[in-house]
């Protein structure tokens, strides 16, 4: 759901960066408290995720490094630091340490009921805030400068959105793990984007796709042995995206290709008609028959186009001869004038 905003803000990889950056937070929280209470760990993840995000912002703003460099940098550095801490923890004499690395890959099956409640509550809060600040979010998304002139504090709204993205990511970590979180954030939104141009529908669709891939993914992984949930969910989500890319009515590849072919056919048809018109023009009688042969040299001509012209009643065929009808002559004349109009 929040992924929609990330996708539209061209910050898609932020999710990836944040999910990696959350790792040292988890490790530090564990080091400080020594307990494996999921709430404190999540708090740590949240803090370090936010820290990473704002450092990325700082790098982009204050230096000439580009956003992709900043993202990759923070991602790998934080993650490496997290690994250092994790291996450091493993050497500590503490029985609790096992299972910290489940945050790396995520285990939906190990979720406790309390975790689920926690997620539900946070999702509810997200939804509430989203609805509350809907107008502000939307306007910031599409025209940041305009928002500023309207007197909104863009910085606060920006921080609010970012914080919620981070929160969502951190929560999701438990389910699908660090590596796959970015896909969970992106895939539903990218799929939803193909079906609509309206933000509200897109958010709704993204939530729907996300939920469906979650349900299907879990179902598939439960039906087979040895299938971890996270990857399956991601694969399902990717299939959704692929499906959307190909089949969405207005932006999809399939329909684009169909439109493309149709346009080309139309163009060929027009070319043939215009060619015929040029021939016919030199005769007084427009329905004077001509041999089909003379069309053979012409590129746009095929039997198919001729058939189509006949079916459109522009041309009459008589054995090896064709002649333009009244209707066809008029259309061709109009076609010609239209083209010159366009050229001017």
């Amino acid at each position: 759901m929040l992924g929609s905003f990330a996708v539209l803000r061209k910050q898609s990889l932020l999710g990836d960066a944040i999910s990696h950056a959350a790792l040292p937070g988890i490790a530090i929280a564990f080091l400080l408290t020594g307990a494996k209470d999921s709430n404190t760990l999540l708090l740590g993840a949240l803090v370090s995720g936010l820290l990473g995000t704002f450092w990325i912002r700082g790098i982009i703003k204050k230096t000439h490094l580009k956003s992709d460099t900043a993202l990759g940098l923070i991602l790998s550095l934080f993650f490496g630091f997290g690994m250092l801490l994790l291996t450091f923890i493993q050497k500590q004499p503490n029985a609790n340490q096992a299972g910290l690395d489940k945050y790396l890959f995520g285990q939906a099956a190990t979720l406790l009921e309390s975790d689920v409640w926690m997620m539900a509550i946070v999702t509810g809060i997200c939804l509430f805030v989203l609805l509350l600040f809907w107008k502000e979010f939307k306007i910031l998304l599409f025209d940041a400068d305009y928002t500023k002139t309207l007197g909104f504090n863009t910085k606060i709204i920006d921080i609010l959105i970012t914080s919620f993205i981070v929160l969502a990511i951190v929560l999701g970590l438990q389910t699908v793990g660090v590596v796959l979180m970015s896909a969970m954030l992106l895939a539903p939104a990218a799929a939803a984007r193909q079906w609509t141009n309206s933000l509200s529908i897109m958010v709704f669709l993204a939530a729907l796709f996300g939920a469906f891939s979650g349900v299907f993914g879990t179902a598939i992984s439960a039906s087979q042995n040895n299938l971890s949930t996270g990857p399956v969910i991601v694969i399902v989500a990717s299939v959704f995206v692929l499906f959307s890319f190909v089949f969405s009515p207005s932006r999809g590849l399939l329909f684009k290709q169909i439109r493309f072919i149709k346009n080309r056919r139309d163009l060929q048809l027009h070319k043939t008609l215009a060619f015929m018109y040029n021939i016919v023009e030199s005769h007084e009688n427009i329905s004077h028959p001509h041999a089909i042969k003379i069309l053979n040299n012409f590129q746009g001509y095929t039997k198919g186009t001729l058939q189509k012209l006949v079916s459109k009643n522009y041309v009459v065929l008589q054995g090896n001869m064709w002649s333009l009808t009244e209707d066809g002559f008029k259309t061709a004349a109009n076609l010609y004038s239209q083209q010159t109009d366009n050229n001017e």
Partner: peptide, 22 residues
């Protein structure tokens, strides 16, 4: 042209990675 470059990256590699994990 359906999505931006970063989104494309973010979509491709988790999918491939998941295939590997599975």
């Amino acid at each position: 042209g359906l999505v931006k470059e970063d989104t494309a990256i973010g979509l491709v590699f988790p999918a491939l990675f998941s295939i590997g994990v599975i």
